[in-house]
Design a protein around this nucleic acid. Structure first.
Lengths: 200, 200
DNA sequence: ATATAGAACGAACGGTCGTGCTATTTATGC
DNA sequence: GCATAAATAGCACGACCGTTCGTTCTATAT
């Protein structure tokens, strides 16, 4: 008996806490996340939650990484099943679009970007690393599409990545303020124009 | 003697407070703005500052409106001196670009948009009204350019406004995280492509 | 000179914040 | 079953939060 529950117990609780923390941070941002709130949401004591992280900053970093993982799992991973080039790039954009729909009410990664872009510290560094990493993945997918001749050979990879990202920012912004439906239509229309500019 | 210093005293102090509050809110957002911090920044007592607004929420609303005013003064107003149509639209975009340069370290309006898009209350309503108002001004300028034949007659006004806004979001995002210079180049390049798509 | 109104101050309120420390409970290895 | 270690709770701390209240100071108006 006593099947090894131990090796996972601590980690399991930690995951539960992070799950709630992620949900709270979607509404209030990482700066709005407080240990007291989180504890009562999880159903634990403040100190019990606190013990899993050691500091509020470490908790915030862990939540940020949770966001990164979920984004990658939802957006990048399934797209990797598509063949390299334009199909994979389109899958990334489509998944990203759906991520946007699911996160109308707030995205931890984006709010973190605007919360920490102007200061310095561990969270700033974490946000920059996460954003740079994602931009890099995006550029990799674009570069493959160029190499395979799916996009014009003179495509500026970083430029296209910037414009794709900008449209996604537009989607999130308008969806949050004015509703997802119209924002989604605008974003789709913009992407059509974008592909037409760069496709061979 | 004793020229009426009284009638403007209150308003002048209020403006001084708002000036400091705006600066603080650029770094920490409207949610990060606290009366204690603000008071010690201005060099007044907490209660002295508080008395000018009556509540923290009213202070935040006043700071938001300060941001709206400054944005309009810096971006829209000087552009109205340009002739209607494309010249005025380009002036708006150019001024907006400069506004972005001056606000790399944080823009109250944008951070407010991401702070309050997912909740409700007076601040949410204020942000939506401000954003809708600006989008409206942008669309007005675009519509004039269409009417005057500076842009293609079949231009989707709201669509172009969305794409311009998205590029500015991209500028602000990348400038804050990766530096203004490269973000500025990318934004300029994107605008060139954008004008080429819509110009007659 | 005196009365009056306005502006800012200082102290205090009840709460919540993040963070330590010490118990107590719970789960594990023998 | 028991010893042991891990996980959680409880409590207290100093700091700051927004807000209220009564007081003081200053400048105008009479």
């Amino acid at each position: 008996m006593t099947i090894a529950t131990h090796p996972g117990k601590r980690a399991a609780t930690r995951d539960t806490i992070l799950d709630h923390a992620y949900a709270l941070a979607r509404r209030d941002g990482l700066e709005g996340l407080s240990i007291g709130n989180l504890a009562s949401d999880v159903g634990m004591s403040k100190s019990g939650v606190f013990a899993h992280f050691g500091s509020r900053e470490d908790l915030q970093l862990a939540v940020l990484d949770t966001g990164r993982q979920r984004f990658m799992t939802r957006v990048l991973l399934p797209a990797l099943k598509q063949p390299r080039g334009l199909p994979r790039l389109c899958a990334i954009v489509a998944n990203w679009f759906e991520w946007g729909r699911e996160h109308q009410s707030g995205c931890v990664l984006l709010s973190a970007a605007s919360e920490y872009d102007g200061r310095d510290g561990a969270l700033h560094d974490g946000v920059v690393r996460q954003q740079a990493g994602w931009r890099d993945e995006l550029q990799k997918a674009i570069a493959q599409a160029v190499e395979l001749g799916h996009l014009r050979r003179d495509t500026d990879v970083a430029q296209l990545a910037f414009e794709i990202y900008a449209l996604m920012l537009g989607l999130h912004h308008d969806a949050g303020l004015f509703g997802f439906d119209e924002a989604g239509r605008r974003t789709r229309a913009a992407f059509e124009r974008l592909w037409r500019s760069w496709q061979t």
